[in-house]
């Protein structure tokens, strides 16, 4: 089995590490500069959420190489408190940090697919994929 490249998020500095690793994978896959920047920003947002709301967790990457398309899968997992009101968190205009463009709706926009599994009290797993254009 392939060992998945993974970054543990324990402190703010680790967010940078996650971005860095994600960007390398994106480059390898042949993403253009704009998409690289978008992926890095999405990773930032996911890692930052872990750092701010769960304390610790990890971000790992999988490359998807299919006949018809290639892509990068970013998975963020934590065992934090989970999200109580998911539809609220996924709503535009909702932000704990204030300001437009931040949060999970931002990640959803930056990536091509977005999936979230969360249970109040048990943690959160977010899976997002970006396809090479």
């Amino acid at each position: 089995m392939e060992i998945k490249p993974c970054v543990n998020i324990r402190q703010e500095w680790d967010i940078v590490g996650a971005r860095q690793l994600g960007r390398e994978k994106a480059k390898e896959l042949g993403f253009g500069t704009v998409d690289q920047a978008r992926i890095a920003t999405a990773i930032s947002e996911l890692a930052r959420n872990i750092y701010l709301y769960a304390g610790t967790g990890k971000v790992y990457f999988e490359t998807i190489d299919r006949l018809d398309k290639k892509g990068l899968k970013v998975v963020a997992v934590d065992e934090g408190p989970g999200i109580r009101d998911l539809s609220q968190v996924m709503q535009d205009g909702y932000s704990t940090s204030g300001g437009l463009g931040a949060g999970l709706p931002g990640v959803k926009r930056l990536m091509d697919t977005f999936e979230i599994n969360t249970e109040w009290g048990e943690g959160t797993e977010i899976i997002a994929v970006k396809w090479v254009r």
């Binding site: 500069t33 920003t41 535009d92 205009g93 437009l100 463009g101 931040a102 709706p105 931002g106 926009r109």
Partner: peptide, 18 residues
């Protein structure tokens, strides 16, 4: 500069959806 503009792009999209 391109990297620094990503969040502005997101904000614009969110603003439009709102």
């Amino acid at each position: 500069l391109l990297e620094a503009m990503i969040s502005y792009g997101l904000a614009l999209q969110e603003y439009q959806s709102l």
